[in-house]
């Protein structure tokens, strides 16, 4: 397989995974208005748990280092476990930060949780092998089914990613275009009004926070099963805001916009700048990239807050209104 094709397949895999991330963050912020400033922590927890669940038992003094679990779980089970782990972390964070009707308290909580989890994962070597991280995560189905070389494995893994991404898309769309999604958007617009109409704000925000985190955890699981390794340098602060920038650029509240954002920011921008080298210290390009992402976020909310593809307007077809009979099956929103 040629190097270019190999590279393009890698990009396609990351494109699919970043779309899943963006849909999840969109459920947090775009739909519900929850400020999650540590989205990547949910990705990381999903990745770590999926990784150590898929790996074999840690060998004392072995090459793979120390880690928990080591259950040898097969593919569809390990990412599910990653999603569950991220959901549990979200429930804990939400319990602390979502009970008050103040969006800044949750934002503060996420910033603090992000740093603490990073610190603990790095220092507590017994969890996920500390700063060195886990490595040797098996590729899904490869040893049991495909027996492919690392290069050849690209195509089957891309198919796996596309299947997972398709399911994630369907779930995200169902949530967005349902009474549930409508209630989340109402909470985003004015939580007092939603409460005055009998909606339990805490329950809705909590469930949206957990669901968004599951998207992160599953995406993280795909990442770790693709790369095969994961350590704290892979989920720095910048990673969270790459997803934020993707969401804001694509168009908050719009799942199609998330696909575009995932293409424009993490795939196109980050990859295009990877090949630029400028003289200076080793982190210079990385720093400039961070500046650009930060500036991009500010400029988008300043000059085009709705993003490239704005949230779509739901228009209802009146001919589908039933005369108190339940005959019509497709009275839901159509695109306007």
């Amino acid at each position: 397989m040629g190097a270019i094709i190999y590279y393009l397949l890698t990009l396609a895999i990351f494109f699919a995974i970043y779309s899943i991330y963006a849909w999840g963050l969109n459920i947090h912020f775009g739909l519900t208005g929850i400020l999650d400033f540590t989205y990547i922590t949910f990705v990381a927890i999903g990745a770590y748990f999926a990784g150590v669940a898929a790996m074999g038992h840690a060998q004392p003094m072995g090459m793979g280092g120390e880690y928990i679990l080591g259950w040898n779980l097969p593919f569809p089970v390990s990412p599910v476990l990653g999603g569950i782990a991220a959901a549990i972390l979200a429930a804990l964070v939400g319990f602390v930060g979502l009970r008050r009707l103040r969006s800044d308290y949750l934002a503060i909580t996420t910033v603090a949780v992000g740093q603490i989890v990073w610190l603990v994962v790095g220092n507590q070597t017994s969890l996920f092998n500390g700063w060195d991280g886990i490595s040797g995560v098996p590729q899904p189905f490869n040893s049991s089914l495909f027996h492919l070389s690392y290069n050849q494995y690209q195509i089957p893994f891309l198919v796996i990613c596309l299947i997972v991404a398709f399911i994630a898309w369907r779930v995200a769309e169902s949530l967005t275009e349902s009474p549930y999604g409508r209630i989340l958007r109402a909470i985003r617009e004015d939580e007092a009004v939603a409460a005055a109409l009998g909606k339990d704000i805490f329950r809705y925000r909590m469930s949206a926070f957990i669901i968004g985190a599951i998207f992160a955890g599953v995406g993280g699981a795909l990442t770790v099963e693709y790369i095969g390794a994961f350590n704290p340098s892979g989920w720095g602060v910048l990673e969270t805001f790459i997803v934020w920038a993707a969401m804001l650029v694509g168009g908050q509240g719009n799942n199609r916009g998330m696909i575009l954002g995932a293409f424009l920011v993490p795939v196109l921008f980050t990859e295009a700048t990877r090949f630029i080298t400028i003289p200076g210290h080793p982190l210079l390009m990385e720093s400039i990239r961070g500046m650009a992402i930060g500036l991009l976020m500010v400029l988008v909310v300043r000059y085009r807050p709705q993003g490239v593809i704005p949230e779509r307007k739901r228009v209802y077809r009146l001919n589908l209104i039933s005369q108190e009979t339940e005959d019509s099956a497709h009275g839901h929103a159509v695109e306007g």
Binding site: S174, S178, G181, Y316, L320, G331
Partner: peptide, 16 residues
């Protein structure tokens, strides 16, 4: 929202 899309559609057309 994920699993009862038909029921939702029927309800919405009635409620509209």
């Amino acid at each position: 929202a994920i699993f009862s899309r038909r029921k939702i559609a029927a309800w919405e057309s009635k409620t509209l």
